[in-house]
């Protein structure tokens, strides 16, 4: 297990290093000089040069890359070009929306998918199973931002149960804050729950066809008992892998849904930063999301290997 963890850790670091180079290189290509955007068209050449020096833009590219990476490692993400505040604080504020949104929708995904998937597997081939699988096909195919718009129309505009957008803020109390995240979380969760329910069902059906289930049945367990006592635990392994992937997807995928609901999360931040050519913010947000995804994948893989020793040999 130690050897496995170390090799995985090495590949994690390698992935992060490559990711940082790719992100830095891509952002460097962005047209537009941040200094001249900040000072406007009438800027004097010497003030422009002074600002470029202050922002470190006159340094060679390699030096700026190392500077950026060194800062990231020390938790110093630099100063936003447009807002002149530390990027770390900006990201922290936005993360207070995006992270709870991702967790909320992940919880919804699991709460919907588990019973649905188990129920369908227990009744394989029945009308209910066929109907559920048909519905999940719809859920997989629906664009989540469109579903979000439809929910705004129904629940915010017509029924007025929710506000159509914006975030109440955590200062307003837990309930109002969660309430303003509810529709976005449902919109994010629906397609993921459909995928997870299908994974759950097929993982259960896979397990149910294995020999040890036949043994359990031969010992007198009913199909349903065998499912609950033996199959479910074994089917959870692929299901947990998918959940890990879905969390990173929900965190990153929130950036479009945040736009539908005008939520002040990382997604809004990244789009604002792109249009303002606030390169340092774009770089940092993208790097943070990539970091989160790679680390979550790594943890899932470790958990997976801890549960199933066969995988360590790979």
């Amino acid at each position: 297990m130690l050897r496995f963890t170390l090799t995985r850790l090495l590949s994690l670091c390698l992935s992060l290093a490559v990711a940082s180079v790719v992100i830095f290189a891509a952002i460097e290509v962005l047209p537009g000089d941040p200094a001249s955007i900040m000072l406007g068209v009438n800027a004097q050449p010497d003030t422009l040069a002074a600002l470029r020096a202050e922002l470190g833009l006159d340094q060679p590219m390699a030096a700026r890359y190392l500077d950026w990476i060194g800062g990231l490692l020390r938790g110093d993400f630099g100063i936003s070009y447009t807002y002149r505040t530390p990027v770390v604080e900006m990201i922290g504020d936005r993360l207070a929306v995006s992270l709870p949104l991702a967790l909320f929708s992940l919880a919804l995904t699991i709460v919907i998918a588990f019973p649905v998937g188990i129920w369908a597997a227990a009744r394989r081939g029945s009308v209910a199973d066929v109907a559920i699988m048909g519905l999940t096909q719809l859920g997989v195919a629906i664009p989540n931002f469109w579903f979000a718009m439809l929910m705004v129309l129904v629940f915010a505009i017509n029924l007025q149960w929710f506000s159509a957008g914006g975030f109440a803020g955590w200062d307003a109390g837990l309930f109002p804050a969660l309430k303003s995240l509810t529709l976005p979380a449902i919109a994010l969760a629906l397609p993921q729950a459909s995928i997870l329910a299908r994974v759950m069902r097929s993982a259960l059906l896979d397990t149910l066809s294995e020999d040890f289930i036949r043994t359990a049945r031969a010992k007198g367990l009913s199909r349903r008992e065998a499912l609950w006592r033996h199959a479910l635990r074994n089917a959870l392994i692929p299901v947990l892998t998918i959940i890990g992937m879905q969390f990173s997807f929900l965190l990153a995928g929130g950036i479009i849904i945040e736009n539908v609901f005008y939520l002040p999360g990382l997604g809004r931040l990244i789009f604002q930063a792109i249009s303002a050519r606030d390169l340092i913010v774009v770089e940092s947000v993208v790097m943070l999301l990539v970091f989160a995804v790679i680390v979550v994948n790594f943890l899932v893989e470790l958990a997976y290997a801890a549960v199933d020793p066969r995988l360590r040999a790979r």
Partner: peptide, 17 residues
Amino acid sequence: LVFAFPSLVIAVMITAA
């Protein structure tokens, strides 16, 4: 490595760049 990247974020970055 490519798989590990959140595709949507990278797509946003590429189109932004």
